[in-house]
């Protein structure tokens, strides 16, 4: 089989362009125009000087999730599992329980969203049949020093509704009873360089290693 004939590489440039110099000067002129404009009118910049100036998000901005309450003060959520099912990041963990005194029968004993995993797609809001979860807080500063504090739990997300906006870490420190498991105040719960779970010990401790 014959090799394909060597093709002359064509740059597609005209003679004038192939000298580069003229085109170069054109480019330099363009960039210089920007510089001069920007020096004399610094308000042209669209940059938001973030920690000092904060952008206010639109109504439709998807921020941190909050859980809504019914008029009687209980969470609207009935643990139907639509949101963990639709969640593409698999960041929602709900443990359902039965409330014998409530007509809704089912309620979330635990409702955790791992904000480290969340991709803020808003599918959970779309999927909810009870309008129990919304992302309309417009909170976009979600950060913490530990992985545990990045888990927003039921109590925290319910409290976000009151316009209360402490970082989860602060909230958990103030309400240690409502902090997620493993959240330990100031120190990282898992020392750096340690494996997350001691698999051998963990399996022995929790029976078959997969306790419910």
């Amino acid at each position: 089989m014959a090799l394909p004939a060597a093709r002359k590489m064509s740059s597609g440039m005209s003679a004038g362009e192939s000298i580069y110099l003229v085109e170069m000067l054109k480019g330099l002129a363009l960039t210089m125009t920007h510089i001069i404009k920007n020096i004399f009118d610094q308000d042209r910049f669209r940059t938001v000087e973030y920690p000092d100036v904060r952008k206010s998000m639109t109504e439709r901005y998807r921020g941190a999730h909050r859980l809504l309450l019914r008029p009687d003060g209980k969470v609207k959520c009935v643990a139907c599992m639509c949101c963990p099912t639709i969640c593409p990041a698999k960041c929602i963990t709900i443990i359902a329980g039965e409330d014998p005194n409530d007509a809704a029968e089912k309620f979330p004993v635990e409702f955790d969203i791992d904000m480290l995993r969340c991709i803020f797609c808003g599918f959970c809001v779309e999927a909810c049949p009870k309008d129990a979860i919304r992302m309309d807080t417009r909170i976009y500063e979600i950060n913490a020093y530990t992985r545990q504090a990045m888990v927003h739990n039921k109590t925290y997300m319910v409290n976000l509704m009151d316009g209360l906006k402490p970082p989860a870490e602060e909230f958990y420190r103030a309400n240690p009873d409502n902090a997620p498991a493993g959240f330990a105040g100031d120190e990282p719960a898992v020392p750096v360089g340690q494996p997350f779970v001691n698999l051998a010990a963990g399996a022995e401790a929790s029976g078959a290693g997969r306790a419910r």
């Binding site: 399996a203 022995e204 029976g207 078959a208 290693g209 306790a211 419910r212």
Partner: peptide, 10 residues
Amino acid sequence: GIAGLNRILR
């Protein structure tokens, strides 16, 4: 009983 505490694991 499948994942129960009564299982022999080691």
